[in-house]
């Protein structure tokens, strides 16, 4: 018997390859184009989802606020009454609390952040500066609720002993309006301190970048004129950076306005308008957190959503302003060919 013929694979003749190839490429290209279209469509839909999210959040917050706005009018923003049992809602107390705590936080975090950025960029050796930046970045990663937990058990007692010291001080500090009232520990000061801790990483990282963008020639010019290092920083480097640092401040402010958990845990949650740092208060975010699931009526829910709308409007405006400013500054620096 003949052995079964073993089929040897034959080489495709080159001429055939030349015949097939263009057809193959054409096909491959056309399927490629179909896949291109699909890929573009899918990723484009993802992008649309992101843009849609911004529209949806604005739309729903406005829609959810409408019942309260219809009932109370836009004037509810300036009304200090908050009495869910009698269906009376006003945002002023919470606006004040948010503004006051944010102000305290920024008043601490802004100088601290800028001075630290100066130390990191101009003074400290690179390795140490890197370690400090890493530590502050890790601080930014700690969730707000945990800082609140730490606030309850460590910061509030500290603040309380400070308040007691002020209260007992023979110099009569407690007669000053900002130091008046009982030394409770919880209140605007404790909340402001936590907000400062949370804003610091933001302010530090933005101002650090702004300082790094200052051209080296600027420094050299200062030293050539015989300036000390601090004079170079103060007269030549910081003036170059103020606008960027202002942008950093806006970003930090937008960040702390909506902070909820940590503030809720240490501010005392008392709706009152007091000038004293030691008084308890309430903020927009913390009243939403505390009362939302216990809202007695649909109107109350709508009122709380309208407080959220105020927060949304404030943060969107601040963020947009800060971003536009930083974009503008970057562009200007770019055209000047700085560096």
């Amino acid at each position: 018997m003949d052995a079964p013929a073993i089929e040897t694979p034959e080489m495709t003749p080159p001429s055939l390859v030349l015949q097939i190839l263009p057809e193959g490429i054409r096909r491959w290209r056309s399927t490629g184009r179909g896949a291109d279209r699909l890929f573009r469509l899918v990723t484009g839909m993802c992008a649309a989802a992101v843009a849609g999210l911004l529209l949806i959040v604005i739309l729903f917050m406005v829609k959810g606020s409408l019942p309260a706005i219809r009932d109370h009018g836009l004037g509810f923003v300036l009304s200090p009454d908050w009495d869910p049992t009698n269906q009376k809602y006003g945002a002023l107390t919470f606006l004040f609390g948010t503004a006051y705590t944010s102000l305290i936080g920024m008043a601490i975090a802004l100088p601290l952040g800028v001075l630290t950025a100066v130390a990191l960029v101009e003074i400290l050796p690179r390795g140490l500066a890197k370690a400090i930046s890493l530590a502050v970045e890790l601080l930014a990663a700690i969730p707000s609720v945990l800082l609140g937990l730490w606030g309850i058990f460590e910061l509030v007692p500290l603040v309380r002993s400070f308040e007691i010291a002020i209260y007992r001080s023979p110099l009569g500090f407690r007669k000053l309006p900002i130091f008046s009232g009982a030394p409770l520990g919880v209140g605007f000061l404790a909340a402001g301190l936590l907000l400062a801790i949370m804003a610091l990483p933001f302010i530090l990282s933005v101002s650090r970048e702004v300082l790094l963008q200052v051209p080296t020639a600027q420094r050299e010019a200062a030293y050539a004129l015989g300036a000390t290092r601090w004079q170079a920083i103060r007269k030549f480097i910081l003036p170059y950076s103020w606008k960027g640092i202002f942008g950093a401040g806006l970003l930090g402010l937008a960040r702390v306005l909506g902070e909820t958990m940590a503030v809720t845990m240490v501010i005392g949650n008392t709706p009152q308008i007091k000038a004293s740092l030691f008084a308890s208060g309430y903020t927009l975010a913390s009243v939403i957190a505390n009362e939302f699931t216990e809202a007695p009526s649909d109107l109350a829910i709508s009122a709380l959503i309208s407080l959220g709308l105020i927060l949304l409007v404030l943060t969107v405006l601040l963020n947009a302003a800060a971003r536009l400013m930083l974009i503008y500054l970057n562009r200007r620096m770019g055209t000047q060919g700085a560096k």
Binding site: V57, A254, G258, T260, L311, V316, A320, R323
Partner: peptide, 12 residues
Amino acid sequence: VLSGVPSIVMGL
């Protein structure tokens, strides 16, 4: 802008 929207608003 979205990344600056407070998380509580996203919850709402």
